[in-house]
Amino acid sequence: MPMSLTKKTVGSLADLARLAGLSTSTVSRALAGNPAIRRETRERIAALAREYGYRPNVVGRNLRTGRTQAIAVILPLGHDVGQPVSDPFFITLLGHLADALTARGYDLLLSRVIPSGDDWLANMTDSGRVDGVLIIGQSDQIETIEEVAQRYPPLVIWGASFPGRVQCTVGTDNRTGGEMATLHLLNGGRRHLAFFGNPDFPELGERYEGFLSAHRKAGAAPPEHLLAVHLTPQTAYETIGEFLDGGARVDGIVAATDIIAMAAIRALTERGLSVPGDVAVVGYDDLEIAIHAAPALTTIRQDIGAGAIAMVDLLMRRLAGEETDSVILPPELIVRQSA
């Protein structure tokens, strides 16, 4: 006599498969979000699982597959220990990464690390707690990341790409972005430019190299000022204020991030300088808050959403055994009122 299936009887994958009229392997792949299974089928299986209260045996699945279904996302803050996870750039990228990982059936394990040695990354990759690692920013830890990347394939970094490095990165063409921001100011008649940002940070260093090369391309006099501003808003504001109070002659600022740019606008306006009348300001990132600045911020856009999707895609391919190249996203100048 056929078994009568009720919400209480669907406690196994086989029961759910019989209810759906499909094979156990098809139902298993559907619940895991496998794109090889049609979306309509995945949605029908998920609805049946909800209706009949089916809960997959995650521990058993992980033991069978050797996977944890978790991905670590690490923020190494060796360059600026005061930078919080609530930084708008971090929050934006984390949101996109969480969405992309969830769509692939993975949990996100977030770790904010202030490195005190060379083992912070190895401790995570060798822990057995995660299937792979995503790193947001190389900070001053590029050598540590490189060493681990040589032996641990499922590792993808948001950061700058450098020839000869094995680490797989996703990021904007930072040098080109720095050039675009600087040429926009030079072409607008600004001649006394300052770069606000710490070039020891790899991505920011590339933006600074673009700042320098733009001056050469334009045949302009060498830039007058480099201010190694921290990435935290209040510290950046205070440092920029001290710089302005020192009497520096500046009519244009290329800021390494939107946060630094907004701190600069605040410091300028509080000293009676108009933006862009007296000093034009260009940021970098095009965070959502950039358009709400006063004045709205001219900036270099990096497509953070596309970058997050690329990071997760590269990681999944590496988990599957593929070799992958880094992805370099094109920057875009977004002109608003600040420059």
Rank of each mutant, 00 (worst) to 15 (best):
M3K: 14
K7Q: 14
T9M: 03
T9L: 03
S12A: 07
D15Y: 08
S25Y: 01
S28T: 10
A30F: 02
A30Q: 05
L31R: 06
A32I: 07
I37V: 15
R38Y: 06
R39I: 08
R42W: 11
I45C: 12
A46M: 13
E51T: 10
Y52G: 11
R61M: 13
R61T: 15
G66H: 06
R67A: 13
I71V: 15
V73D: 05
H79T: 01
V85F: 15
S86P: 00
F90E: 12
T92S: 13
L94S: 11
H96C: 09
L101P: 09
G105L: 09
Y106N: 10
S111A: 10
R112N: 14
R112K: 11
S116T: 15
S116N: 14
A122R: 14
N123E: 15
N123D: 15
M124S: 11
T125K: 03
T125C: 06
V130P: 00
I135L: 01
Q138H: 02
Q138V: 01
D140F: 14
D140K: 06
I142L: 04
T144L: 00
E147P: 00
Y152W: 10
P153V: 15
V156Q: 04
R165M: 07
V166P: 08
Q167D: 02
T169D: 03
G171P: 03
T172D: 02
N174H: 11
R175M: 12
M180V: 14
T182S: 12
N187C: 01
G189N: 09
E203G: 07
L212S: 08
R216N: 03
P223D: 05
A228Q: 14
V229C: 05
V229Y: 00
P233H: 11
E238D: 11
T239H: 09
I240S: 08
L244P: 02
D245F: 03
D245I: 00
V250Y: 12
I253L: 01
A256G: 04
T257R: 04
D258M: 03
A261H: 03
M262W: 02
A264Y: 01
A264W: 03
L268M: 02
T269D: 00
G272W: 12
L273E: 00
G277M: 08
D278Y: 01
I289Q: 12
A290K: 09
A293L: 01
D303E: 12
G305Q: 08
G305R: 08
G305M: 03
G307N: 07
A308E: 07
D313S: 10
L314H: 09
L315D: 08
R318W: 14
E322W: 01
E323P: 09
T324A: 13
S326H: 09
S326N: 09
I334G: 04
V335D: 01
S338A: 05
A339F: 07
A339V: 00
